[in-house]
Amino acid sequence: MSDRIFAAALGIIVLIYGWIALNTIKAPFQYDPLGPESWPQLLALVMLICLALLLWRPDAAGFDLTQPSALRLLAMLGLLIGYALLFKPLGFILATFAFAALNSRMLGASWRGALAFGFGMGVGGYVISAGLLDLNLPDGPLPGF
């Protein structure tokens, strides 16, 4: 069942992809027999055939996702989005400290372990990456190297 839902959902996306390839992509002038639109059209066609085959004969495998797992995944997703949002404004050290501490706490570390880990990742990661390896990381409000 999950295969069929997936195939149908992806099918809609591919139809939109194909529609764009058929209608909006056009080169102003071209000498080659195949323009920028042909390849995507071909791909959309192949994909639709494959998806139709999958719809016709899906695998039996179900979609087993327990509720606690789903909640943990959502929390993980939320944390990652938060980390991405704060990465530049807060700078690497603060954002990483918060993310590492909260994430390890969420996955079962003790508060003490989580805070120590966050501190180590934030400061240690910055010193190694920006200091030692000379990588470009955001400083945020803290003074950088």
Partner: peptide, 17 residues
């Protein structure tokens, strides 16, 4: 619980740099 955040941080460092 330490390994997972570590992967995320490495990925973010890599992409941002």
């Amino acid at each position: 619980h330490y390994l997972t955040p570590l992967i995320a941080i490495l990925a973010f460092i890599g992409i941002y740099t």
